[in-house]
Design a protein around this nucleic acid. Structure first.
Lengths: 175, 175
DNA sequence: CCATTCTTGTCCACATGAAAACAATCCACA
DNA sequence: TGTGGATTGTTTTCATGTGGACAAGAATGG
């Protein structure tokens, strides 16, 4: 496990550093992002991590994850939706969706129904328990959403939302 | 493994569907997103998945992943950067960063150096091999970036970038 | 100077998500 | 009718990423 050189030197690289005068070496050191500075993917990833972190802060104790919650919400909004459609909409692999739904089934949150006209597929809907979980979580979720972009003005948030939608929506529904 | 009812019925849920007249049941069925429609986190996730997919399309054969490439780029831009700083900047766990860097070390792309003034830490820089890999990949990367948002106008792309930066940057560097 | 506490990177156990092979079912078409 | 191919969900296997304990070194404070 070592194609490594752990050389023990320390000279010459101050010159390549952005601004040696900053002194304090800590994490607040200015980092050159180079081409990443203008990379959409890069900033998307960072933004999503941020949103993720915020989510977990809000829903700390609830044992809920962003993905799971969105699945529940979508089932609630579209009773009888099929697993595959759900997976495609959320850009989750079908194999993964199977696991998620299985988990919800075991927790009694989601009921499966095999329609007579296509016995391969599975229609999903919330149980009463699932319904009430979503209902009770929703206010917290909405409050979280409202606060989530407190670094942006309302207008900026709106613009961001529109641009994101246009960005990911414009190329067809995620083959 | 079955808190499940696999009932075999098929009635009554057409009523709850958005528009039964659409007929074709396929994936192009209109899905109600409900509160997700206006959720930043939701659209961020979808957008990132989209960017991810595009990235893999471009760099299919190169065995490169978005994360790995950004690590390499950042090391290239900041020779001597320490692992922890890198991890913090990219919002990657230190434990994971250790693995990544280890992999780069084994491939001879990155050299580690333990500075004399703090022998816990590890300074990273690209080897010649790493340098040339980044150099040869960069044009492709830049082209990819330029094309990545072809569903947006140049101005929209610029706005999106700025808003994302403001969004994730405004709350401090990811504690 | 020593003891305590904090940092930095590493290791190991585990969770999360993806790729691919698979079984059941449906559909097209002869 | 029935046969080959496509679709739908499941299973298995594997890569990727996280959490927590740890060891070595550095800082703090008497």
């Amino acid at each position: 496990m070592d194609g490594f050189d752990d050389a023990e030197t320390k000279e010459s690289d101050v010159l390549t550093r952005p601004d040696p005068s900053l002194g304090t070496v800590g994490a607040d050191q200015a980092i050159r992002l180079g081409p990443l500075e203008r990379s959409l993917g890069f900033h998307l990833r960072l933004s999503q991590m941020r949103a993720f972190t915020d989510f977990f802060e809000t829903f700390a104790g609830d044992g809920l994850q962003p993905g799971s919650l969105s699945v529940l919400i979508l089932i609630g909004e579209n009773p009888g939706i099929r697993q595959g459609v759900l997976a495609q909409t959320l850009m989750i692999k079908r194999s993964h969706m199977a696991k998620i739904v299985q988990g919800f089934g075991e927790k009694g949150l989601v009921a499966r129904r095999v329609p007579a006209d296509d016995r391969r597929s599975v229609e999903l809907r919330l149980t009463d328990k699932g319904e009430s979980l979503v209902a009770s979580t929703m206010p917290k979720f909405l409050a979280h959403e409202a606060a989530s972009a407190d670094s942006l003005t309302a207008e900026e948030r709106q613009t961001l939302l529109a641009l994101l939608t246009k960005f990911h929506g414009a190329k067809g529904p995620a083959r």
